[in-house]
Amino acid sequence: MNSYSFIFISLLAGAIAGLILASVNYFVAEPYIDQAIGIEIENTIAAGETVDFNELNTYRVWQKEGTFVAGAFLGVTYGAVLGIVYVIARKYLPSSDDRKKALILAGLICLALYVVPFLKYPANPPAVGDPETIGLRESLYTSFQLISGLIVLGLSVLLIKFKSVNNFKYLIPVFYVGLIGFIYSIFPANPDAITAPMDLVNSFRIATFTTMVMFYIVLGIIFGMMWRKYRPHETTRLTAS
C-alpha cells in the first residue's frame, strides 16, 4: 500500500471535481442565487431598512470568486471520504476494474450523503432561510446525513457477512427502504417557511441537484482513473511476490 499516492489521489480527485462543480455552478446555479439575493434586497428595502449597494457588490464579488476555492474544499472533503471508504471497501466492491468500483462507490456515497438528505431537506436558495434557525437546521441536516450514511454502511456490512445465506441480498433493499422511511418520518421538517417564489426555489433545487449528482459522478470517474493509473494498493504486492 502506498499511502502517499493514496492520499494524493483522494485529495486531487476531490479538488478537481470540486473545481468542475464550481465552474458549472457559475453558469447553472448562480443566476438563481442572484435572483434570490435580489428578492432579499427588495424585502430589506420594503422593510424600511437602507441597503448599502457598494458593500453588497463587494460581497457578491467575493461570493462568486470564493465559490471556486470553496468548491475545491468541498471536493477535498468528499474526495477524502471516497478515498477512506474505497481503501477499506475495495476488495468487496463488484467488478475487477477500479474505474467501475470507484464509480459504484461514488454513486453509493452520493445516494447516502446527498440524495437521501435532499429528499428530506431539499436545498434552498438565499432568501428562504431564517438566520435564527441556522443552528437547528445544521444539526438536523448533519445528523440526517450521518444516519443515512450509517444505514448504507451497516447494510453493506450485513450483505458481506451473510453473503452465503441464500437470497439474503434481496432483503437488503427492503431493509434499506424501511430504515430510510423510518428516519424520514421521525425527523422534524425544516422549520423555515418558504417566503421566496416557489418557481425560483424549484428551479434552484433542480439545478443544484443536477450539478451535485454530476459532481459525485465526476469524482468517481477521476478517482477511478487515477487509482488505476497509480495503483496505490499494489506497491507491497510487488515485493511479496
Binding site: 446555479a29 448562480e30 461570493q63 470553496a70 468541498l74 436545498a123 432561510g129 441556522i134 441536516y141 443544484t208
Partner: peptide
C-alpha cells in the same frame, strides 16, 4: 461564510 456562501447553498447545506 462569504467565501463559501454560494457553494454552501448549492451543495444543499443549510444557510441563512
Amino acid at each position: 461564510h462569504e467565501f463559501t456562501h454560494d457553494i454552501r447553498h448549492a451543495a444543499g447545506f443549510p444557510c441563512h
